[in-house]
Nucleic acid binder design. Sequence first.
DNA 1: CTGAAAGCGCTTACAG
DNA 2: CTGAAAGCGCTTACAG
Lengths: 343, 343
Amino acid sequence: MKKEITTLKMLAQNLNLSISTVSRALNDHPDISDDTKIKVKNLAKSMNYIPNIFAKGFRKHKSNIIGIIVPNITHYFTATIVRGILEEASKQGYRVIISESNNDVIKQNEMLNTMIQFGVDGILASLTKMTKDIDNILPIIDTLPFILFDKVSDKIPCTQITINDEEAAFNVVEHLINIGKKRIAIIKEREFSYNSEKRYAGYLKALKEHQIEIDEKIILSVDDISLQHGKRMANILLSIKNRPDAIFAITDSAAVGVIQTLNKFNIKIPEDIAVVGFSNSKYSTIIEPKLTTVDQPGNTIGKTATKYLIKEIENDNTNDIATSKTVEVKTQLIIRESTFKIS
Amino acid sequence: MKKEITTLKMLAQNLNLSISTVSRALNDHPDISDDTKIKVKNLAKSMNYIPNIFAKGFRKHKSNIIGIIVPNITHYFTATIVRGILEEASKQGYRVIISESNNDVIKQNEMLNTMIQFGVDGILASLTKMTKDIDNILPIIDTLPFILFDKVSDKIPCTQITINDEEAAFNVVEHLINIGKKRIAIIKEREFSYNSEKRYAGYLKALKEHQIEIDEKIILSVDDISLQHGKRMANILLSIKNRPDAIFAITDSAAVGVIQTLNKFNIKIPEDIAVVGFSNSKYSTIIEPKLTTVDQPGNTIGKTATKYLIKEIENDNTNDIATSKTVEVKTQLIIRESTFKIS
DNA sequence: CTGAAAGCGCTTACAG
DNA sequence: CTGAAAGCGCTTACAG
């Protein structure tokens, strides 16, 4: 029982005009007289005319749909980015198709392909953790506009939007030093994570600049930077002879795990051991003591990425390597009880 | 520098066949010989043929895209539902377009309209809080397949997928009674929320069944069932002369606010006052004591809703009121420290 | 300022 | 078993 859909043809017949004229009037073509335009537009409105996007897209080879692919949509930070993308896209007249890779490279590639098949005008992607197989992505980036955000990779020559991971981590560690900490542990991910490596670099840089000795024993790497592993690592750090006086976990979840463990052993936070996370997720204000962390403006990342993508789409310069750039969105250190100045 | 796209025509020329035959071969039409099919399919693969979904959709008046609209995508539970939708949709060859209403009715209507304009085959919606203006939705539901999930409304005659709110709340309250609580407060939303009303109904039913007096003074309603309001309500409940010995907050966030407040006043949980939330969000295991709550299987809701929608799409029976049904997905009470049996 | 016509890539009745 | 042709709803060079 679908409703009768108004088409250009119907409008044309009604007004005794040609389809061409009606089409042009609706698109504000300069050749058409204002008189006609007004007549056409009024009728269109009264007949509830909705252009058939498919015919249009088909004709112009443009769908006004952008595809986005993320590892895990249930992460608060990711959802926040998605929200930014949705806002900006809808403002500019684009719709958004979403896929989740679940950190599965095979799935990610499948999804990229179906997106292209579905005729998206461009793709915004946040990579899986182990995106070693850049091979599947490289052919795509000169097929259509493609931009990376959050989980990016410098192996892929395209525009990338991230946060200033290195600087943010540097600020975290410097803050810990400023409150008097001298033996700062870090819990990071294994090598393949871009973000983790950047944060680690910031950590090292801060220690060096403040001439603090780097001790491998308190630099821990895990496969999956989760709450569970945070707990495990905290236990390890407590067991070594020369305990750290601060723990920087590269993720809020891990930091929460650390705090829970320290609480269990009645270790005073931040006096005995200070703790810092990363993300400013909701947990950070629910755990006791409240967590010092880095706020990442997901909304800004999403909007920025979308702006760049649409610009590329509308200029039709498919990922010109020359025009690719890396944009770093500024984060902010949020200081809470887990590192409060001791005095 | 877009790559040359393989079309049916190119395949046809290459094989000296007609476009019709190639099209039929690719679609496994019974009229075509196996020989031809194999030849065509092989060439298609080697030439990397991808059907143009727009031409196809345009021709068949079908986009294979479903639209979903939710109030807030950053809510963990919502993201979980979205994940379920994505999984099921992609399994059945559909793509998903997402919009966020931010609980704004005007925006919601705009989005519904653009979705229809974008030619989605059907819509899955979770309503804004104050969807009193059903008026805008009613005309839609007999235009195309339309299904409600999570935030539903019995004013709209279409298939609805929710959790068993009433039963779940009943179980919560019965559990509190079983551990010896006799004066159970509830923090709910104001009247316009469907879910809140159902949970409230479950609350009342349990009290009645166990012949516990209903006291308006410990039935609190808020506009926005957030952590902040949870705190505020907890303060109110602590200030009344005859304090409750249990608080059922209709949301985990509010329950967390309650716990933080009780902790501040050193009230023993659950001995003095037990606390229950709703959602089994991540916070519920981060707060101390860990929160008893109701687990809502978002994934199942998403999948179920999608299955029904696609069924409606493919049967082309647009929201036959006769076939509309309300499906309740079962929840599970998760008992944790905030209500542990006292003995 | 307006119209007739071609064409985007596909499917499908119709004919053989 | 295969092909020629129409048509889905739109835009746009071409002609007037």
